[in-house]
Amino acid sequence: MEPKFQPFSDRYSGKLKRIYRNWLDRRLPKSTEITLSQRRIFILPNRPGLLFSGLLLLLFLMAINYQNSMVFAYTFMLASLFPVIIIFTYRNLSGLGIRVAECSSVFAGEAAKITLDIYRTDHRIRQQLQFRWNESSHTTANLLENDQDQIELYVPAEQRGYLNPGRLNLQSTYPLGLVRSWSWLRFELYGLVYPKPIEGELPVQAAPGQEPNLRKIRVAMDEISGLRRYVLGDSPKQVAWKSYAATGEMNVKQFEGSESEKLWLDFNEVRGGHLEYRLSVLCYWILKLEADNCLYGLRLGEQAYEPASGIPHRDLLLSALATFDLDKEHSVSR
């Protein structure tokens, strides 16, 4: 989906559009940190700017027909202002730095939060910096006294894989609103889009005639195999509170079930559906088993992840789902 506001890529369809985008890609490569310079800034008068030129023409006619020296002077003053406006509008963007500060991972269909640091490499004030990823995700920033600022944008993550919200449009018409300078920013983002969770049958390889029983599995988790260091996000139920009271160290109990009690989620066991559906079901079960404090592992193609539990484990598995069978380059040039 192309955002509506893109004035150029939207106006030319088909081949022309592709040529333009390829040119943009070559001219403005991906980066995690971008400093705006003449290579990246485009500048043209906008509609009020064209109206202003029409006004200049009218004023010039008035000066000529009335042979009025001061109307000439006034017209020339406004006309001389135009190159100054261009310089000042350009100056408002040039020397500006933008860096990805944070990028969250999300499930497909949700909006990913992207936090950008904007800063200046000089001491000039910046005003009316309009950042837009699309119609619903835009914000305006200023750098007046502060040398840097942080902005947050939410971009919809439609497809599983690497988060790729396309180009960020940065534009400004400051100071006079008659000339628009803009740039297209492409960031190297590290956010992932996990599959959208879809409920389905538990995809485990069951012994013949033996239905997997969740309750039984949970009961089996009484045997503690050891402790490990607490990681932010671990369930409080698993924290070894007794040892915390004794030693002041926060640890998490680790369980060791017998081989038959470990759950191996298996890509090949998901019934029916295409690749994305299968991953979605696996995703659903990873979330569910984590919430139920189960031990779960994952067999995904060649890869096998040993059963365990905890937020880091969950995220590892989700990342595996997100990037499974994904040609990175293919995903990027979507």
Binding site: A79, S80, L81, P83, V84, I85, P175
Partner: peptide, 9 residues
């Protein structure tokens, strides 16, 4: 800005 435009004017 206006003062900078003055010479050209």
């Amino acid at each position: 800005m206006l003062l900078s435009a003055l010479p050209l004017m």
